[in-house]
Amino acid sequence: MSATNGNAAPVILILEDEAMILLEMSFAIEDHGAEAIQAPSVRSALEAIEKARPDAAILDVNLGRNTTCEAVATRLGELNVPFVLHSGDLVRQGELIARIGAEVIPKPSSSDHVASRAIALARETRET
């Protein structure tokens, strides 16, 4: 199932519309020896997923102009790809977050923490 074999570095998809956070998160993923796939929009995230199934993902929830990560979360769910939600909009998006039902890390959090959670999920899923 996995895009990578058991020993290769896990591939983590990052959906984040804020460039600086996307960059920081990518570095944090790479610092952990994993591979980061950067997606600044829902469309690019969906394209990346179809190209190669990631091992885990980090999803920003509110992507501006009434766009949310829900379509990406749904697709990842279909493919059994685990993910964490990284959001600074817990109050307004509470309903959506509850519906998606994934682990939530509130913004701002240390990128190292977010990265290690995503990589841990990738490893757990790989082992099962």
Partner: peptide, 24 residues
């Protein structure tokens, strides 16, 4: 207030990113 809260948290996250990337 919620919009402001969201933007503020985002801005703090961006500042955090800036510092981490610079530190790196």
């Amino acid at each position: 207030a919620r919009e402001l809260s969201h933007r503020m948290k985002n801005m703090f996250a961006v500042i955090g990113g800036l510092i981490t990337v610079t530190g790196r």
